[in-house]
């Protein structure tokens, strides 16, 4: 590990233009610069249609930026890789594999022996609280449990950076709140550099060390950055929590 001042991820002046249906230009991101320190939990907050998922996909290496660069530990990102674990909004589990089979995907692809990868998978299944569900298939799990599998799978691949793309967007409000608590707990148990995309202000404040908000309506632009200096575990009804929420809400309304 390098010294803590060295940023883990640096996005510099990223813009993205998609060409759709051969001739239609869609300007999705404009001049985004973000850097994330090691083991920092950064939330990218933006309304729908602000390009935040695209930004995450660029960092994951699934899209190439039209201009600008992404570097990880000083090296430019040129494609997807096991050093960045991505958790999808739509879970994306293999329906024909059990929880264990899904979680051990990464180690299995890297050719790690069965016994060893079972141990790793089991450890993260326990971490996300899915012990006794190892043999279940995704269709037997609830939405929240499926996303736990997604998180365990990302962790089991031992990435340096976790990228979460609106992971709780498909969950009901109660489960979502519970999963946010779980995410905070898991992250504090095993710290990683995290980039978390969401459109939910409370979720952003509850989880983030730092919140980077994007301006809505395409193309997405940098809007504001908020440091969240609240002690963990946080309470959503705390005075300071509500003040920050008010501040972010007010600022967002001006833009919209």
């Amino acid at each position: 590990m390098k010294s803590n001042n060295q940023p883990k991820i640096v996005c510099q002046n990223i813009s993205k233009v998609f060409i759709q249906k051969g001739s239609q230009r869609v300007h999705v991101l404009e001049d985004i610069s973000v850097d994330v320190k090691p083991n920092e939990f950064v939330v990218i907050l933006g309304p729908g249609q602000s390009g935040k998922s695209t930004l995450l996909r660029i960092i994951a290496g699934l899209e190439t930026p039209t201009t600008g660069t992404v570097t990880l530990d000083g090296k430019e990102v040129s494609g997807p890789g096991a050093d960045r674990g991505l958790v999808f909004q739509s879970y994306m589990l293999f329906p024909w594999k059990t929880v264990l089979g899904n979680v051990e995907l990464g180690p299995r692809l890297r050719g790690i022996p069965k016994k060893e990868r079972r141990e790793v998978a089991q450890r993260y299944i326990n971490l996300v609280g899915l012990q006794k569900f190892e043999k279940h298939y995704p269709h037997q799990l609830s939405g929240g449990m499926k996303q736990r599998v997604g998180i365990a799978r990302a962790y089991a691949n031992n990435p340096e950076v976790m990228l979460l793309d609106e992971p709780f967007g498909q969950l009901d409000a109660q489960t979502r709140y519970f999963m946010e608590k779980e995410t905070a707990r898991i992250w504090e148990t095993e710290k990683r550099t995290v980039l978390f995309v969401t459109n939910n202000i409370e979720e952003a404040i509850y989880l983030g060390d730092r919140i980077i908000s994007l301006q809505g309506k395409l193309p997405g632009r940098m809007h504001a950055t908020y440091e969240v200096n609240l002690p963990r575990p946080r309470e959503q009804t705390e005075m300071k929590f509500l003040e920050l929420r008010q501040k972010i809400t007010d600022a967002s309304e001006l833009v919209l």
């Binding site: 994951a60 290496g61 699934l62 494609g79 997807p80 890789g81 096991a82 960045r84 674990g85 991505l86 999808f88 739509s90 994306m92 293999f94 024909w96 995907l105 990464g106 692809l109 890297r110 691949n157």
Partner: peptide, 26 residues
């Protein structure tokens, strides 16, 4: 085959042959 499933496997460092064997065939 779901393209997102293929992308997901790519982020785990899967090769073309891995994806064919473990995602496309099932």
């Amino acid at each position: 085959t779901s393209p997102t499933l293929i992308q997901m496997a790519r982020t785990y460092g899967a090769t073309d042959w891995d994806i064919f064997k473990k995602i496309c065939i099932p």
